[in-house]
Simulated assay, not measured.
Amino acid sequence: MSMHARDKPAVQVAKPIALHTVTIVIGAFVLIPILYGVLGGFKTNQQLSTNPIGLPDPWVPSNYTDVLASGSFWLQLWNSVFIAVATTVITVGVAALAAFVFARFAFRGRELVFTIFASGLMFPFAVAILPLFILLRFFGLLNNPLGVILPQAAFGLALTIIILRQFFRSIPGEIEEAAILDGCTPFGFFWRILLPMARPALATVSVLAMVSSWNNFMLPLVVFNDPGLWTLPVGVQQFQGQFSADTARILAYVVLAMVPALAFYSIAERQLIGGLTAGATKG
């Protein structure tokens, strides 16, 4: 017993140290490339070749200011924001209605239909890119923002429905019965009571849909031939091809393209974690 008493504090001390060590290592793998990119954007190409990991000497802010002064960067930023917001609104709106039906209504074949929706998670986006391109060309949606928004929303429905259905099922049935006794219709219960109660889950799926749309590179690359419709991921790739010899300017462009996504995530992080935690505790 005495040996166990002596070993127990050692285990309690070693476990937090190990967790902190792993966290620091993972954080270093994430932060070091970002820091290298930020500092590299303030260097010249000569500095990058002679002093790749040191501080800029002298600092060259023109790489960043030149990108910010270009109209193409702001146009691509607007395109990314517009497509991400539209995708999120459609995905969450349609998924919320479908999840409400799957969670609160009993009908024959409900689980089969839900399984069909959930099976969408098994198909990678890249597998469908060729038939999707043919379909978009048939409907005349190439070089059209809807050609990106609608497929992104469709592919985002599966995960969104799964998350929202689980949350909607956790709402006590007594609340719905009381609302119906007060004269509330099923849609009125959904709109006035269920959605306000599901704000943490709605925030979670909104963040996931927004980030997924923002990072999508393949679909905008295939759909958009007009440079005026390019999103930031496509713009980064095209900018890299245009200035392939100017590494410092490419790093500045990439860093500036990351800033909106990092700013959005820093704002939405609490909602995302809160929604996931709420879903876990209610499930």
Rank of each mutant, 00 (worst) to 15 (best):
A198Y: 08
A18I: 10
H4Y: 04
T88N: 04
V101C: 08
A248N: 06
Q238G: 09
W214E: 05
G275D: 06
F73T: 05
A268D: 06
F29H: 07
F117G: 05
I26H: 00
Q238P: 03
H20F: 12
A201R: 03
L159A: 14
L146C: 00
D182R: 03
G93F: 02
K15I: 15
L229V: 02
L146S: 06
L141T: 06
A278P: 01
V94T: 13
Y265S: 10
F123Q: 07
R249D: 04
L31M: 12
T91G: 02
L136S: 07
I32C: 01
I34N: 05
T115I: 11
I32K: 06
L232T: 03
V89D: 03
P220W: 11
A203E: 07
G274T: 10
N51L: 08
P16R: 10
V207M: 10
Y64S: 01
R6K: 13
G188V: 09
S244P: 00
R108V: 10
V259I: 14
I53F: 15
L132V: 10
F42H: 00
I129Q: 04
P227H: 06
P124C: 05
H4K: 09
Y265H: 09
G173M: 12
T88S: 07
V101R: 00
V85A: 09
L219R: 01
M258S: 15
L229M: 10
P220Y: 12
L208V: 14
L19C: 01
F187I: 10
V81Y: 00
Y64I: 01
A128H: 01
T50Y: 10
T50V: 13
M122D: 10
P227Y: 08
L202H: 02
L142M: 13
P52H: 11
N215I: 01
L256Y: 07
A280Q: 03
L232W: 03
D7R: 14
A268I: 08
V81H: 00
G188N: 07
A14E: 01
D57L: 05
A118E: 09
Q271C: 05
V101I: 11
A245W: 01
V94H: 04
A98K: 02
T277S: 15
N79R: 00
P145E: 08
L55F: 14
V13D: 09
F133K: 01
S49W: 09
